[in-house]
């Protein structure tokens, strides 16, 4: 029984993940701001998900389960590598508007919003993405991030406060293309 159960879970993960890979990559981009790192993060996440498929509860949301894995791998394993030696500052290297987006003639407003989001510290960026980009409830985002709900709320409030400030100062604050 346990065996069939595991194979059932394995199947749920195997068949459920392909349509979600783009979403995982996007989350990876939000965290790393680097397409190669995002690829690597997705790969590590999928590998972990496949290896631990027995922990996945069929019927629950696969995307949230894998986001949890991705978030944890980034924070516990990969992030330290991307931080430059010395005054490593991950946030300075973030670029959400990739060549692909630039080429695609994405509407100007979307690009502008992404440029603004790039300016946010990682924790805020991530909370904004999960709640406003992915539509997760505060509590769901907190579970993905493994932090208290209050932390998600304060990151969101800080992010929106900062974004409001950017609006006040007008477009000149946006980084040059």
């Amino acid at each position: 029984m346990a065996v069939s159960n595991i194979s059932e879970r394995r199947r749920a993960v195997e068949t459920g993940l392909p349509p979600l890979l783009k979403n995982l990559w996007r989350y990876g981009m939000v965290l790393t701001g680097d397409p190669d790192m995002a690829n690597e993060l997705v790969q590590a996440t999928c590998l972990r998900a496949l290896e631990r498929c027995e922990q996945f509860e069929p019927g629950t949301q696969l995307i949230r389960w894998t986001y949890t894995i991705l978030s944890s791998i980034w924070k516990n394993e990969l992030r330290s590598r991307s931080v430059r030696q010395g005054q490593g500052h991950v946030d300075a290297e973030i670029a959400l508007v990739t060549d692909g987006i630039a080429e695609m003639n994405t509407n100007i407003l979307a690009r502008q919003v992404l440029k603004e989001v790039e300016e946010l510290p990682e924790g805020q960026r991530e909370a904004v993405f999960l709640v406003y980009g992915e539509g997760l409830a505060y509590r769901e985002a907190a579970e993905v991030l493994d932090v208290p709900v209050g932390t998600v709320m304060s990151r969101l409030a800080a992010a929106r406060s900062k974004l409001a400030g950017m609006k006040d100062q007008g477009d000149h604050l946006l980084p040059a293309e």
């Binding site: 783009k22 979403n23 996007r26 981009m29 939000v30 959400l96 990739t98 692909g100 987006i101 695609m104 994405t106 509407n107 407003l109 979307a110 690009r111 919003v113 992404l114 603004e116 989001v117 904004v128 993405f129 406003y132 980009g133 992915e134 539509g135 992010a159 929106r160 406060s161 900062k162 974004l163 409001a164 400030g165 609006k167 006040d168």
Partner: peptide
């Protein structure tokens, strides 16, 4: 005022 059309913006990344 700190709100934005976030979902639309992030969708561009998906593409």
């Amino acid at each position: 005022n700190g709100g934005r059309p976030f979902a639309e913006a992030f969708d561009a990344m998906l593409a």
